[in-house]
């Protein structure tokens, strides 16, 4: 997993509550055998004017000009701003896979659905919770400011606004450690490589029929 430290990114505002996993990546795309390549179908039903099916060439589909990610000024956004209960619905990991594949690294919202929140960390995405006053304020600033960027410093747990003002956020220390060091659960387990090997050596003695 890519290390997550400091970065400065363009923010796209998705002004909706209860964005569910089916909206994030509609179910017809789940037959895929891959975990990458979902980016073009992120928010498919909102993003395109036609009905999306797996295997379509997305570059030729009619875009919905109203949808925020299709607007010129939000091209290249890496931070998504949303409202409460983002990521509700199923436990499938396709939702964070699609957001990450599109290029998002951070999602700021008033609240997140539980399973989605955990799945984000497993896939290198940082979900940040701010209270609704701050989220409101950010939405206003974005609409008033061209090229609105935020600097995210995970180590310091701060976000810096364009005017230099800082906002502090909370993150679970263990999750933070994993993101900062680019450790997915696998990377983390592999830190205990010696313990696993020692266990295997012992088990080969105790229960050789297992090897």
């Amino acid at each position: 997993m890519e290390k997550f430290t400091k970065f400065n990114g363009l923010v796209a505002p998705l002004d909706r509550a209860n964005v569910d996993t089916d909206a994030i990546i509609p179910k017809q795309f789940l037959k895929s055998i891959k975990r990458t390549g979902f980016g073009p179908n992120l928010f498919d039903a909102w993003r395109y004017l036609d009905q999306g099916e797996p295997g379509m060439d997305n570059t030729h589909r009619p875009l919905n000009p109203e949808f925020v990610l299709n607007q010129e000024r939000f091209q290249g956004a890496t931070i998504l701003l949303a409202r409460e209960n983002f990521g509700c619905g199923s436990s499938r990991e396709h939702a964070p896979w699609a957001l990450a594949d599109y290029g998002f690294r951070v999602i700021i919202a008033t609240s997140f659905a539980d399973i989605f929140f955990n799945n984000c960390f497993k896939n290198g995405l940082l979900p940040i919770v701010f209270d609704s006053a701050i989220v409101d304020h950010l939405f206003q600033e974005i609409s008033a400011t061209a090229n609105y960027k935020l600097s995210v410093d995970l180590d310091a747990q701060t976000i810096t606004r364009p005017n230099g003002e800082m906002l502090a956020f909370n993150v679970d220390p263990f999750r933070k450690h994993c993101l900062l060091n680019g450790l997915d659960d696998i990377g983390l387990t592999l830190q205990h490589l010696d313990a696993i090997k020692a266990y295997e050596e012992r088990r080969k003695e105790e229960a050789p029929w297992l090897f």
Binding site: T189, L190, I196
Partner: peptide
């Protein structure tokens, strides 16, 4: 994937 990679 975790089991494949780490056996744990």
């Amino acid at each position: 994937e975790h089991v494949l990679a780490t056996q744990c």
